[in-house]
């Protein structure tokens, strides 16, 4: 006896409240400004978080950053509908200059994985229309040499 089966779709149209540090970080993105947040011991974390993942202490002041960094790891993927780029690209962890840890986002090298390497220098490419969300950074792109 075979079973009946049918397709269906579930949607969750959530709005999610953010904390003061995350809210300021995202508002900064809307203004094409990148901020980190001060953690105990003088470390700077980007993206900004409310609590330091190492000590669980509340984080401190926001620190404006230049928006450049170094790729510390990357993976090459095929583009899908709704992705930040219309051609294949890398997801990467970028160590933003002046921060500890790394930042997850896309890197655009024009669809050529041969141009990706660990250690490469990249910078933020802002989207033209920004609304205060992580996608306001369209992607990172190589810093011209």
């Amino acid at each position: 006896m075979t079973s009946l089966s049918a397709p269906y779709t579930v949607e969750f149209p959530f709005d999610r409240t953010v904390g003061p540090k995350v809210g300021t970080f995202l508002a900064g993105l809307r203004e094409a400004r990148l901020f980190g947040v001060r953690a105990p011991g003088g470390r700077v974390l980007c993206p900004a978080v409310e609590f330091d993942p190492e000590t669980a202490e509340e984080t401190g002041e926001l620190v404006e950053l230049a928006g450049e960094g170094t790729v510390v790891s990357w993976t090459w993927v095929s583009t899908r509908e709704g992705d930040p780029l219309p051609h294949d690209f890398a997801w990467a962890l970028v160590a933003i200059d002046g921060t500890d840890g790394s930042f997850f986002h896309a890197v655009d090298v024009g669809g050529d994985p041969g141009r990706m390497s660990t250690g490469m220098r990249v910078r933020v490419r802002w989207r033209e229309v920004r609304v205060g969300e992580i996608g306001d950074i369209g992607c990172f792109e190589p810093v011209p040499v």
Binding site: D15, L26, A27
Partner: peptide, 11 residues
Amino acid sequence: LPQPITSVKSP
């Protein structure tokens, strides 16, 4: 500093 936003869409 920018005025913080209070929520994000999370669909």
